[in-house]
């Protein structure tokens, strides 16, 4: 299975990516907002329902998400992932028109000694299957590091490179 690997440089949060997220997307993309806490990271997921349905192929959503969000430390040790409550709502992004989205929360906890601000996100929800999909990852809050602005800072985009049909690794 292809893996989208993204190193979330949470502290500097200045990573620019080549998936041109600034240009309008023909279709709604996933939004992942990361909140860094003292001992864990909360990932708030906004997933367009249409593409999620294509991707999970009947697998229960929580189990599906857990299988495709597998962060590891930079030396390869797995984090634990707990998927919280799910909700369905209506959303709209620039030029997409309104659409249904699934909202979920995942609590990501590093193993003892794991760095909360330098880890490999290893996230390929939807994009492992729906190759026209894009995921934008942002850091919303990092209280401990002094990030409390209301505006999230984008740290990366996860998308398939259609020439090679593989995910790119952003570091």
């Amino acid at each position: 299975m292809r893996r989208a690997l993204i190193t979330a440089l949470v502290v500097t949060a200045a990573l620019l990516c080549g998936a041109s997220p600034a240009s309008a997307h023909p279709l709604p993309h996933s939004v992942v907002l990361l909140d860094v806490h003292e001992t864990s990271v909360t990932a708030h997921l906004q997933l367009p329902a249409g593409d999620l349905e294509l991707a999970r192929r009947g697998e229960p959503i929580s189990a599906y998400l857990a299988a495709h969000i597998t962060p590891v430390t930079t030396d390869g040790r797995a984090w634990t992932v707990a998927i919280g409550d799910l909700a369905v709502g209506r959303a709209e992004q620039t030029s997409t028109g309104p659409y249904q989205e699934v909202v979920a929360t995942a609590t990501l906890t590093p193993p003892p000694g794991g760095d909360l601000r330098h880890f490999i996100f290893s996230y390929d929800v939807i994009v492992h299957q729906v190759v026209t999909h894009t995921v934008l990852v942002s850091v919303r809050q990092d209280w401990a590091a002094g990030r409390v602005e209301s505006e999230a800072v984008q740290v990366g985009a996860i998308a398939i490179d259609s020439r090679t049909m593989t995910c790119r690794r952003w570091t």
């Binding site: 041109s20 240009s23 023909p26 279709l27 367009p48 249409g50 593409d51 294509l54 991707a55 299957q129 729906v130 190759v131 026209t132 999909h133 259609s162 049909m165």
Partner: peptide, 13 residues
């Protein structure tokens, strides 16, 4: 094996 929510080689591709 893949699924498609849109055309792959659309605008700006």
């Amino acid at each position: 094996t893949e699924s498609f929510g849109d055309v792959l080689v659309g605008p700006q591709q």
